[in-house]
Design a binder for these strands. Structure first.
Lengths: 123, 123
DNA sequence: ATTAATGTATTAACCACTTAATACAATAAT
DNA sequence: ATTATTGTATTAAGTGGTTAATACATTAAT
């Protein structure tokens, strides 16, 4: 999965979300070592400061930890990752349902549209 | 529906989305007159310039039009509103499905979680 | 021992968004 | 006729995010 960054939101916030995704989905496994700040920045075509900022925030939340001159690692806490995944899923679903209901669709509508579109996308 | 603005995205962009919503869901009916820029700005606790900026963009897209010193009105083009509603719904569904699948959930998972949560929210 | 790579910090510049304070022309309301 | 309200425009200031260019201390690699 390439870095997918747009200009309509702070880049560091998008990086946080995508790193969480990479961690929850196993792209960066439990306890594994991450590429260096500079490498990640190059990979994402972003300034090292911006990458550093995102990674620091991820440390605050406990998903990563850094060892002074060795590098940065994914937490070994399986449970924290599971909880993060649940939290993200819940947030997405809540937001989705709110937006669709604001638009004037009921549960029936939502489910049928969703079925239609996932069939479409599978092709 | 109160104005729901957060600081993590340009306010004018959020206003555009919420105005589209108000138009598509009938809060501002076809051809109806909107409150003045200044009133809308006050209502949303936002600077008149910011509201003006959002409304101008909505004119560019054709959803609104302004009459020099009389005020601003919703388009009378029913079809344009219908198409806008469809477009927004499609965008939300696509984004939702992508995010959930990136997280590692398949269609089965998504549907069951969605059912659970809409039951929860109905209480 | 020297070198290279690590995370981290600092300073300056740039840009987009937002607010504030006005101002203007056109017209509806009085 | 006068006044108030409309959309619109301008200028200045402040803020936060981003980039750029360095620098530093620590330690793994050589």
């Amino acid at each position: 999965m390439p870095w997918d960054l747009t200009s309509d939101r702070p880049i560091y916030a998008q990086i946080i979300e995508q790193m969480e995704l990479k961690i929850c989905s196993g792209v960066y496994p439990l306890g594994s070592k991450l590429p260096s700040v500079r490498d990640l920045a190059r990979e994402a075509s972003v300034n090292p400061n911006t990458m550093q900022r995102a990674l620091s925030k991820l440390e605050e939340s406990g998903l990563l930890y850094s060892v002074r001159t060795s590098g940065r690692y994914v937490t070994e806490d399986v449970n924290m990752i599971k909880e993060t995944k649940k939290r993200i899923a819940r947030e997405h679903i809540e937001e989705f349902l709110k937006r669709m209901s604001d638009l004037g669709f009921d549960q029936q509508d939502i489910l049928s549209m969703l079925n239609d579109m996932s069939k479409e996308l599978k092709k």
